[in-house]
Amino acid sequence: MNQCMRLCLFFFLMSFASFFWQFPALEQHAAYAGQQTYSIGVVPQFEQRKLHAIWKPIIEDLEKSTGLTFSLNSTLTIEAFEKAIERGEFDFVYLNPYHLVQVHDAQGYIPLVADKVPLRGILVVRKNSPIHTPAELDGKVVAFPSPNAIGATLLPKADLNQLFHASVKPLYVKTHSSVYLHVVKDLAAAGGGVEKTLQEQNEEIRSALRTIYTTRSFPSHPVAAHPRVPADIREKVRKALLSLNSSPEGREMLRKVPVEQLIPVTYSDYAVMSSWGIEKYWQPVSGD
């Protein structure tokens, strides 16, 4: 009798324990089902504090206008960001245009809005530099933000190589601002950037630089949504972002991104970049 009762108690306890073992999985499923907090990833164009200062007000405005909850996420490096978007970690993401193309097959991020002003890559030298053409950069140290930056690295490198047959020694310095400073401080003979980021530099830097080459234009950085985000939420976010154009406060927030004016975009606006032959300059993220 006693042995029979102990057996019954054992099965009861095991059943109880298996119930609580299953509970976290149930809770995660419920969270996805409710989708109350959406992550927003931002490409680390700037150092983290500045990035936070730019995007936090925009996120708060989004929450206020959509009634949704967002968490701002970023990574310390471009490489880590690329890994994150390849894994589809962010529900919403502000990313390079070519990143959108690169991870389209893997994650299928859907672009929602982007600056209406297109991007153009540039090569800059110090104002008093003896170099006046890209061809003169052959063999020189040229600073780039990161290996896979479409406007500042991939397109200039492809053009230098393909159009001007110049082979440069790339020096990756993380950000566009760092590129410009390296050039100004004569740490590099030239630097790759985009027009928009150069315009954002202060007058002292801009006046110290001279653009010797501008690439073709391409659509600006989009805000894209992961396909797992419901369409109505995506639409709600798109409208909320577009509504920032209509208020001075919104425009001021966008100006810091920097975005002049947001417009609705689709993937077709970016799909053309896959035909530019820059894949061979793309450097996959190592170790992943």
Binding site: F46, A143, K174, T175, H176, S177, L181
Partner: peptide
């Protein structure tokens, strides 16, 4: 080490 001159400036 990371040549983050802009961050250094900031």
């Amino acid at each position: 080490l990371g040549r983050e001159l802009d961050t250094i400036y900031e």
